[in-house]
């Protein structure tokens, strides 16, 4: 049972890293980080508009 649990935990970690890398969970992280700060949170749509704009500024190499 233990190897299976380790494997499942590894898969969960890989999935979490993939979501983090791709920005799939960026809005959830934003909400967690800014909850309770007393200011209005951006809507999911507005957040991703800004998020993609920022991604577009990253250089891509040769």
């Amino acid at each position: 049972m233990r190897p299976w649990r380790s494997f499942a935990a590894g898969l969960r970690l890989a999935w979490a890293l993939l979501r983090d890398w791709s920005g799939d969970d960026a809005y959830e992280r934003y909400c967690r980080a800014h909850a309770g700060h007393g200011h209005d949170l951006l809507s999911r749509r507005a957040f991703y508009r800004r998020y993609f704009e920022e991604r577009g500024k990253r250089p891509r190499c040769c």
Binding site: D20, Y30, R60, C61
Partner: peptide
Amino acid sequence: GHDYVPTNPWVVFGHHFAAIAGAG
């Protein structure tokens, strides 16, 4: 939470590698 964001090292490695590795 915008420009400066402490990030998991594997994720940073992924961003860094995706940015540096092109057709060259």
